[in-house]
């Protein structure tokens, strides 16, 4: 597995888009592409070639799990890490997201100073 560099972030809330970009780029030193919807992610994933996909669960039109399913139909996700982001915290829900192919779930609200470390931890637990 290569080094973690490029993160695709799919999120419809502009405030969260902006703060996550700062948190991942300025604090974590990653390259981030922000997509405002599942469709946006489907259109851009091939051009960006991410190492890591960060998916918001609840989005209008196409939600996070559906987006993941549709992404899998067009690209090989076996070499790409996936994590969901959501405000919900029931343990069985986290299990459910894992069965969809996500490595982990990042709970909102997140601390901008800690987000990059959380992502890195998920990555190294899976590939480290």
């Amino acid at each position: 597995m290569s080094e973690l560099r490029r993160i695709l972030h799919v999120e419809d809330d502009p405030s969260i888009q902006a703060v996550a970009k700062v948190a991942l780029e300025a604090v974590g030193g990653f390259t981030v592409l922000t997509c405002a919807s599942g469709q946006d992610a489907l259109d851009q994933i091939q051009g960006f070639a991410p190492d890591f996909i960060l998916l918001d669960v609840m989005m209008p039109d196409m939600d996070g799990p559906q987006t993941l399913k549709n992404l899998r139909a067009i690209v090989d996700l076996s070499q790409i890490a996936v994590a969901f982001m959501t405000a919900k915290v029931q343990p069985d829900e986290i299990e459910y997201y894992r069965t969809l192919g996500a490595l982990d779930v990042i709970i909102k609200p997140f601390d901008p100073m800690q987000l990059a470390a959380q992502v890195r931890r998920i990555w190294s637990q899976a590939y480290g």
Partner: peptide, 20 residues
């Protein structure tokens, strides 16, 4: 409900934990 969900997920990140 959608609006509340958004706030509960975002407010804390920006320092509005009580609202969240």
């Amino acid at each position: 409900r959608e609006q509340l969900h958004k706030l509960s997920g975002s407010a804390g990140t920006f320092g509005f934990g009580t609202l969240g």
